[in-house]
Computed example of a mutant assay.
Amino acid sequence: MQPSSDHEPAVLALMRASRALVGLTVRALADVEADVTIPQFRALVVLATRGSMRGADIAEELNVNPSTGTRMTDRLVGKGLVRRVRSTDDRRVVQLRLSAAGRDIVEKVMARRRTELERIVAETAPVWQPAVTDALTAFAVAAGEMPEQEWWMGWTRQAAELQD
């Protein structure tokens, strides 16, 4: 059942665009031959964006049950994409951090996605008016996504933590 509203055309367009964006991610994951599901990749991106986190915080960020988050991160640890690090302040606290392999997957997938998005934007250049870009930016902010420059600053911090 789909509610009808004045916003219906925008909602339908975003639903279609969302499917296309998920498809780009799936193809990019397949290209890097990563044994990673979309939800697992999202967890890797959360760690890349936010830095080290507790498992419960990742589960909350992904809006999944803590037990689901634990199973997911256990699998990522098992694949060598995430590692557990005990807090130096409180040995009871275990933080999850991207490994070099996890960082490599995120970098490759994001680079492939960006290349594909650049191609698509070039093909649809006439419709990319400032209002469209502003609307998509506002949408991303409302959805809680970080701006690209902040995301990469977090990424730089995460890479520095891996060097420790």
Results as ranks from 00 to 15, higher is better:
residue 47 L to Y: 05
residue 5 S to N: 07
residue 48 A to L: 06
residue 85 V to T: 12
residue 55 G to Q: 07
residue 40 Q to R: 15
residue 130 P to F: 09
residue 38 I to A: 06
residue 9 P to N: 09
residue 10 A to C: 07
residue 86 R to G: 10
residue 49 T to P: 00
residue 129 Q to I: 13
residue 140 A to M: 12
residue 147 P to G: 12
residue 84 R to Q: 14
residue 4 S to M: 12
residue 120 I to P: 00
residue 100 A to Q: 11
residue 79 K to R: 15
residue 123 E to N: 10
residue 106 V to E: 01
residue 47 L to E: 05
residue 3 P to D: 10
residue 107 E to Q: 11
residue 57 D to N: 04
residue 24 L to Y: 08
residue 28 A to E: 03
residue 92 R to I: 02
residue 116 E to H: 12
residue 111 A to P: 00
residue 78 G to C: 04
residue 27 R to T: 07
residue 36 V to R: 02
residue 127 V to P: 00
residue 47 L to H: 03
residue 68 T to H: 11
residue 39 P to E: 07
residue 147 P to T: 08
residue 62 L to S: 02
residue 20 A to V: 05
residue 39 P to L: 07
residue 121 V to A: 15
residue 88 T to Y: 11
residue 30 A to K: 13
residue 40 Q to L: 09
residue 36 V to C: 04
residue 69 G to S: 04
residue 58 I to E: 00
residue 17 A to M: 14
residue 11 V to E: 07
residue 153 M to S: 12
residue 78 G to V: 05
residue 152 W to C: 01
residue 99 S to I: 02
residue 58 I to H: 00
residue 14 L to F: 13
residue 68 T to E: 03
residue 136 L to T: 02
residue 58 I to T: 06
residue 154 G to Y: 05
residue 120 I to N: 02
residue 1 M to C: 08
residue 29 L to W: 08
residue 135 A to I: 03
residue 40 Q to S: 14
residue 129 Q to C: 05
residue 152 W to Y: 15
residue 144 G to E: 06
residue 108 K to L: 10
residue 80 G to Y: 06
residue 4 S to T: 14
residue 54 R to A: 01
residue 9 P to A: 13
residue 28 A to K: 04
residue 44 L to R: 03
residue 51 G to C: 11
residue 13 A to S: 12
residue 105 I to L: 10
residue 113 R to Q: 14
residue 108 K to N: 11
residue 146 M to F: 06
residue 35 D to C: 06
residue 60 E to V: 03
residue 126 P to T: 06
residue 156 T to C: 05
residue 20 A to F: 06
residue 142 A to E: 10
residue 126 P to K: 11
residue 30 A to L: 14
residue 80 G to I: 09
residue 2 Q to F: 15
residue 164 D to H: 07
residue 115 T to K: 14
residue 132 V to T: 15
residue 116 E to G: 02
residue 16 R to C: 08
